[in-house]
Design a protein around this nucleic acid. Sequence first.
DNA 1: TTCATGAAAAAATTTATATTCTTTCATCGT
DNA 2: ACGATGAAAGAATATAAATTTTTTCATGAA
Lengths: 214, 214
Amino acid sequence: MKSNHAISEKHMAGKRPGRPSVDRRDEILDAAERLYEAMGFEKVTVTDVARALGMSPANLYRSFANRQAIDEAVTSRALTAVEDAAWHVARGAAADPVHIFELLCMDIALKMRDLLFWSGRSSDLCLAATRGNWPPVQAFMQTLRGLIRHVIAEGQRQGVMRADLPLEETTAATFSAMAKVWHPVMLDTFGAADLESETAALTRLLLEALKVKN
Amino acid sequence: MKSNHAISEKHMAGKRPGRPSVDRRDEILDAAERLYEAMGFEKVTVTDVARALGMSPANLYRSFANRQAIDEAVTSRALTAVEDAAWHVARGAAADPVHIFELLCMDIALKMRDLLFWSGRSSDLCLAATRGNWPPVQAFMQTLRGLIRHVIAEGQRQGVMRADLPLEETTAATFSAMAKVWHPVMLDTFGAADLESETAALTRLLLEALKVKN
DNA sequence: TTCATGAAAAAATTTATATTCTTTCATCGT
DNA sequence: ACGATGAAAGAATATAAATTTTTTCATGAA
């Protein structure tokens, strides 16, 4: 799975005057990200982003259909970082799917917390995206679900997780259960005070259901 | 001060001119509830409530410290109805704690859904209360947690649920897991389309962890 | 005294207006 | 042509003034 920037340009506004031949999306997103980080994304105007790049605001619209598209792309990049780290855990060194499950659950919870409470002002964007159920958030949640399914399936294959539980339903239920410690809206509502112990307890309980009995 | 210290009236605004000797709280709450239902609680003024009762607005302030207190009391009554129904299920006819657990989880989820999506305009109030984490909501959540603990403890006592799982931690984890289908903020974010099957799947998985092995 | 109210201060909300931001597109320079 | 832009229309957001709502409290009636 290589980076496929050149291909996935469904975002390229085809109707616009002329889209750039060289792709300046990443430049733009870098600048936007920096500004969002510095002053909170709600205070940043597209003029600010353009100025930071020494171009006119109008020029941004050849790379992005509108401001919402920029916001979503920045969101996407932030969430992709979490996804990548999580996939790394899931495919990582640890061989035992049970252990991987534990690591994965905790890793995601802590990364989401960081995103919301320690990512400077980027949390505004993350929260807005979550509240509005923006497409990148939906995609992200799908990825998380895929991760869970992957680990459970592997656990079942290796005989350390119960194979008599239906994979899809079990995946869905596990994913639902983790929402309390994974979902930004929940983290925002309850804060992240006992997040670690809560996540650990939740994970332990779920594993009691998933693990094969001794 | 006289010998009158049998004051169970913790709610009585003590600092106010003279509090009523006969408690008109319930009357007031009835009127408020009716109005909230009819026109949405954000549109209702305390003057409206007072007028509905044929009294002056100022008079309400002898029974309630402020409008927020009225809103919270109405919220409290709505949530108490759910609590009561849930306790009824928990202590109800069904003898098997495992079955009670299933019924309880589903009952709460469906009642929360009704509150949010079918209670006319009362859902505004419920959502505002949940978003702001009002005290009645916190109390409600504590009650739900208590219900779960009760059922699990009973299941352990009867030997149908695993007694080797620590009661408090298991209760906490179970409660966390149910947030996805119980918590108004989640219901609001995701809608209630597949609520029943999601709740059923979640409950089944949790029971796999809680039940004793065959 | 005890209960209740009118009237007014304080707070919040709405309305109207002004300013800024987003987005388009005709036009410029290469 | 092609990438880029200035300028202006359309949206959205902020500011200010007016109105409504919440809350207090001194005073009156029972």
